[in-house]
Amino acid sequence: MEKETRLQRIIFHLRREWQIYAMLLPTIIWFIVFLYKPMYGLQIAFKDYSIFRGVAASPWVGLEHFEHLFSNDQFIRAVWNTIKISALNLVFGFPAPIILALMFNEILHATYKKTAQTIVYLPHFISSVIIAGIVITAFSPSVGIVNTVLGWFGIDSIYFLTKPEWFRPIFVGTGIWQEAGFGSIVFLAAIAGVNPSLYESAVVDGANRWQMMWRITIPSILPTILIMLIIRIGNIMEVSFELIILLYQPATYETADVVNTFVYRQGLQSGRYDFAAAAGLFNAVVAFVLVMVANTLSRRYSRTSLW
């Protein structure tokens, strides 16, 4: 048989497999139109963008927006707030689902365990608007249950959501309330994967439940903990800003304003698209670097990549 050319091979391949390309095409077009085209639009961060001229025709201004950005106190504050809120989330929000999973693992009563799990997973599925509505109602100075309870102890009403010093505790606490239960699923799955004979031999060796938790369960799920920690670090720039937009107000910007809310206000509310896009680009690049570092670390320490 004569040797075929590369072109013939490609034609034969396409004739035979055109259907999978047809299936892939809509998705690829979607990604180009809705995710990659905006990346092209990111160039307005280096341009004096005008709606009328459009992305391509607007004149270049180099790093002007970035110079303004880094001399803008509000932006610097937003970067710090992002980091501080993420750090609080890490310190308090990260261990919560692990502790919860370890505790669920100690419960013998199956129905009790199942019921509790069903309930603690629920808030994950509630929208941030409703979460905000609940928080606003519960912390309201007149109606709110929190102030009602404080009133029982003779403490005067506090208008929590206007106090900068209260914003972060409330925000982080809400996050734990909403996500700790759901987050425990991953760790419970890891615990379920521990070889039961390890516990059996520990029982024979006379270990109690507390010792088994520390000496068997925790070391066994350590790889999972590490991977989840790395993912968390990779996502430091991703604060759930939807909830912040719903909960903050000018009085609490001081502690509540993060990069994404800053972008939202500057861009969509004040129409400074190019300037806001520069802030967004800064955030995206930092986030990208963090994710890449996290993935490299994960690959090194667990020989699993995150995707």
Binding site: V263, F288, V291
Partner: peptide, 22 residues
């Protein structure tokens, strides 16, 4: 090509302007 969008996102403003252009 697809996974990359999980790590890098153009952000709020370019997405909004893109929607307006479309």
């Amino acid at each position: 090509f697809i996974a990359f969008t999980m790590w890098f996102n153009a952000g709020i403003i370019p997405f909004y302007l893109n929607m307006r252009d479309l």
